[in-house]
């Protein structure tokens, strides 16, 4: 393994009865939050404005200080190390990206490695590696932020946050300012990237659909910084803890659950599709399958994987996949 790819293992993040109260405010911004984000997983924090989701995230790298409770990363209290060291070990990505306009793209990525005293050669190698990782041409290294589109800037923001391969990443509505097409594209790439590099991510968003897509776990906060429910997307959609969560995940949560599963998971290999059945890719979501089924008027869809036909899926099967209790 080369010195530039010193893979650091992800670490779990534990909130232990954390309460944050801003001076002069009646209700706390965060009220007795306890939850564990397992190492290597992405936890999406969702909730209304004033629900404390950004506060919860900023406590982790101590951009905001808290009085009671504790937060640990990999078992170590975040108060046990000095704040600069702590932050350099945590990737930080914000909605407005915040690239340094006077530095080139390579310069932006090299800021923390430079402060940590990496050699020029090591920094150059790492920069190339990161530009490859976020799918930017290496020639972007010499450009200035103002020369890049919003999507490209956020890719650089990601590369910069990953520069020293931190075990933990904090992302504050990172794709919120992008147009829908660019957002979908960069979301997909981030999911891919996450499967290659194991990071524990806290991802703040106000968009429940984004949370369902990006999060292994979702924490729904409510007004006053109270954790309403914490679980997988499937758990939240199938069994919302209360009316608030049900309302928050949306009345169409049945449809949203369809988005969580692939056709390949429900396909019935022994059933033959009728002749008029439209084809759906095995990796498409059940939601796409349902849509295709409705649009065609057929009684089932044919599930294909490459050129191969895996079998058929009927409307009844789609319905039972949603109504069946979570596994």
């Amino acid at each position: 393994m080369s010195e530039t790819t010193t893979e650091r293992p992800a670490a779990d993040i534990v909130f232990d009865h954390v309460t944050k109260r801003y001076p002069g405010q009646e209700t706390p911004a965060l009220d007795d939050l306890s939850m564990t984000v397992p190492a290597g997983e992405t936890c999406c924090l969702v909730g209304p404005s004033g629900g404390g989701k950004t506060t919860a995230m900023k406590l982790v790298n101590r951009l905001i200080d808290f009085e009671s409770g504790d937060i640990t990363i990999g078992g170590n209290s975040i108060r046990a190390v000095d704040v600069t060291t702590l932050r350099r070990d945590i990737g930080y990505v914000i909605q407005q990206v915040g690239l340094f306009p006077h530095m080139t793209i390579a310069g932006n990525i090299a800021v923390i490695p430079g402060l940590l005293g990496w050699s020029k050669d090591r920094i150059r190698k790492r920069t190339d590696e990161l530009l490859d990782l976020v799918r930017l041409d290496r020639s972007f290294g010499t450009r200035y932020p103002a020369q890049l589109s919003g999507g490209q800037q956020q890719r650089v923001g990601l590369a910069r946050a990953l520069a020293v391969d931190p075990p933990v990443m904090l992302m504050d509505e990172p794709f919120g300012a992008l147009d829908p097409i660019t957002r979908t594209e960069i979301q997909d790439e981030f999911l891919n990237l996450e499967s290659e590099i194991s990071k524990t991510v806290i991802f703040v968003t106000h968009d429940i659909d984004e949370a369902i897509k990006m999060g292994d776990k979702i924490a729904v906060l409510r007004q006053g910084g109270v954790l309403a429910q914490y679980g997988t997307a499937d758990e939240l959609l199938a069994h919302p803890a209360d009316d608030y969560v049900a309302d928050f995940v949306g009345a169409d949560r049945g449809l949203k659950r369809l988005s969580l599963r692939r056709m390949r998971e429900v396909v019935n290999g022994s059933a033959a599709a009728p002749d008029d059945a439209p084809a759906v890719d095995a990796d498409a979501s059940l939601r796409i399958g349902l849509s295709t089924l409705f649009a065609s008027g057929a009684s089932a869809v044919r599930v294909t994987d490459g050129g191969r036909v895996l079998g058929a899926v009927t409307l009844d099967q789609l319905q039972s996949a949603v109504t069946r209790s979570t596994s």
């Binding site: 060291t85 932050r87 350099r88 915040g98 340094f100 923390i112 923001g157």
Partner: peptide, 15 residues
């Protein structure tokens, strides 16, 4: 200076 650049710098661990 742009607020976002300073916020990013703080979060990244610049003193």
């Amino acid at each position: 200076v742009p607020r976002s650049a300073v916020e990013a710098a703080e979060g990244m661990g610049l003193t």
